[in-house]
Design a protein around this nucleic acid. Structure first.
Length: 107
DNA sequence: ATTAAGGCATGAA
DNA sequence: GTTCATGCCTTAA
């Protein structure tokens, strides 16, 4: 196991749970998730990068504050991510998405 | 076991 | 577009 065992497991658990709650056709930002959990925006990206459960964590629905897709995607590249978002109904222009219309309202 | 340095899928100015 | 700031994690000695 990695260092992710019990110490920050609680925060990570909430983070992954929150991300897995993102409905298709909507996206959210790292800062949004991080802020909702009270963690650092950088940590959000870090946790997603680890992606312990990619099958249940739609990390492709998570973009940065600029609405831009991540520079590198663990599944096959940002291009694949953009393609996937469009498949769900999210309008992706280049590597950007319309946050004003597809931004998921974090609880 | 502890300490040190580096790196990151961000955000904001 | 670039630079600075911040928190956490990883690896090494």
């Amino acid at each position: 196991m990695n260092s992710l065992n019990k110490m920050n497991n609680e925060i990570a658990e909430q983070f992954y749970d929150l991300v897995s709650q993102i409905p298709a056709g909507q996206v959210t930002t790292y800062g949004q998730l991080a802020k909702a959990l009270g963690i650092n925006p950088r940590y959000a990206g870090y946790l997603l990068h680890h992606n312990p459960r990619p099958a249940e964590i739609p990390c492709h629905r998570v973009v940065n504050a600029a609405g831009r897709l991540a520079p590198s995607f663990a599944f096959g590249g940002s291009s694949e991510q953009a393609r996937r978002l469009e498949q769900e109904g999210v309008v992706v222009v280049g590597d950007k998405v319309d946050l004003g219309e597809f931004l998921w309202p974090v609880a």
